[in-house]
Design a binder for these strands. Sequence first.
RNA 1: GGCCGAUUGGCUCAGUUGGUUAGAGCGCUUCAUUCACAUUGAAGAGGUCGGAGGUUCGAAUCCUCCAUCGGCCACCA
Length: 697
Amino acid sequence: MDKVYNHKEIEEKIYKEWEEKRYFKPEINPNGKPYTIILPPPNANGALHFGHAMFTVEDILIRYHRMKGDAALWLPGTDHAGIETQFVFERKLKLEGKSRLDYDQETFYKMIWGYVEEHRGGIQNQLRKLGFSLDWSREKYTLDPAVIKLVYKTFKRMFDEGIAYRDYRLVNYCTRDGTSFSDLEVKQVEQKDPLYYLKYGPFVLATVRPETKFGDTAVAVNPNDKRYQKWIGREIEVEGLLGKFKLKVIADDVIDPNFGTGVAKVTPSIDMKDFEIGKRHNLPLKLIVGFDGKLTDIAGPYAGLYVKEARKKVVQDLQKKGLIEKIDDNYIHTIATCYKCGMTLEPLPKEQWFVKVKPLAQRAIEVVKKGEIKITPRNFENTYFQWLENLRDWNISRQIVWGIRIPAWRNKKTGEWVVTEGDIPSGNEWEQDTDTFDTWFSSGQWPYITLLTTKPGDFEKFYPTSVMETGYDILKAWVSRMMMMGIYATGKVPFRDIVLHGLVNDPYGKKMSKSKGNVVNPLELVEQYGADAVRFALMYGNATGNDQSLSYPKLDAARKFTNKLWNIGRFINMKRIYDLRFTIYDSRDELLKHAIHEKDREMVKRVEKLAKEITKDIDNYNFNFAAEKLYDFIWHMFADKYIEDVKTRIDENSCLVLTTLYLILLKLLHPFMPFVTEEIYKRLGGQESIMISKWPK
RNA sequence: GGCCGAUUGGCUCAGUUGGUUAGAGCGCUUCAUUCACAUUGAAGAGGUCGGAGGUUCGAAUCCUCCAUCGGCCACCA
């Protein structure tokens, strides 16, 4: 053995061997009880980032359960990531001076497909470099035909049962990206805008959007507001930029008498609340902002102007006509913006597909409240409940082409809609919806769809899965969707436990992002420190679910630890008095026969106690406890104290105990540091592979 | 406005459902060492656990209030 552990020579070789020997497949323990984790599918087009390195948690669980004899399945897959991917591709097109509008839907889809295919596979190899024991033979992709088929099937069932429906209502629309978003994808941003107090017939009312007044169809007050009682139900005449016009005064509870003057203009085509008011009072809907982000024809001379310019001009003209009473320049409010491009989103009326979430959310809440599913760390349960309880119906249509096209057809003559499981309805009067599903609609079905499309019997055997482990940042977007859809589609919960890990920030505690330029590629660290060290550093000293900052000193400490492990092995190798080909460590009695010296017996007990603690810590998802204990024990107890002592009195028996105990420690450490433990294990005469050896009791 | 975190030695963080002198890594001080360890070992300095109350025999740990920072959520124009 060399003096220094060199991960570069070892990691790749070992991973290859594991894969060749099919150790990653659950069939390695054919009679074990199933233990399943579905890997949160990374973007097929993406590269590894630190969120992925945190999947170390899943590898620890899988390796641990595999060693315990379970039929452990860790199922990999990739996601087509609709909007994300299409936007990346469009940005690339833009550099070439082209846009998506230059192509028809089918061509554009094929182009993105080709682009993704070029990059697919990259992420898989990166996950390999981290030592992840994924069953690659079961890998899935969200655009596999069999997967799409099942997504269709769920949608059809939802449609038949009235859970999925089509409706005309306001959706969050980005006029730059040309698509609608679900409420979840909206980024609320606080900003300061002038609040204009407009003279409005007999009233003065406050608004931040005077340019939309051409779309007003009523004026509203609170029914209990004494100031305006006499006006309710009457029609008022308003002097406007386009001349005089008439509006009805209505009373509605949502109007806050304390805001502004207590009078609000109602513009149902541009405001969620106004839209609801409009529905309650049967108000007409006048489209004032178009899907191109410009004012429509009803704005007269302002038609064709983008919202921002229009506001400027309208305000100028209103001022000229003396129609603005005052302007509050310190008004702070939150506006909805596009999480992709930052553009202010317009709520616009559009016919879309929605999923009725109330009944689904109800059950998703129940199973957690009843304790059928446990969320770790516990405090995320609050967030989960709060979100599911306030959920509005889910807009699942996206006006993008990269995704699973919605299998719904409209009758050109009658306007009737039919939904199929992908078949084209007979007759030529049908045209398919051009929209695609929200990516989360398909990934929300991931646990059962993957298992139903891998190998026959997989679903029956491995579903419900054991643990869903992922970053807390997608608890709502993804985990809760899987809960709702999993329960709906299979009648069973999709997983037994939810475990959430924190984010990895840059060394200064700032979130890593491309725009900030502070992104660290985990693979570079793997190259430099070794996968074992990177994995260990991420687990050590960080409580489950807490964010952490990338720490180079910690990485260095972890790397030194691998070297320490190596040198303990090296020492034992050098002192080995006779060839140790034994499996004796599976038998406590045998081991104790050789543990003659008092200190040897004591150490056997200490290691046994440690094994129990590590087992408990992993079972409880306290990976930091386990990592810290192993580090501390191996270094400061086993090496500093025990080995120093054995050194002075080494004989056959003590050497055997020393070696045996070390192999046990390596096993306990193996889920955390798979490569170095495997290499040492083999060098010290361990049979076959540490990853399929028995977990110490 | 609501919810959830965080606040522990110079830095980065643990602290396992309240219990003897509060831990680790890095850094720092002193000594030893090429005898498994591009090093490592031994010893040590350094914290009134954000603030103020309270519960308790006992609190970094539970309760209340406050302060600072961060995150998530919310259709008051």
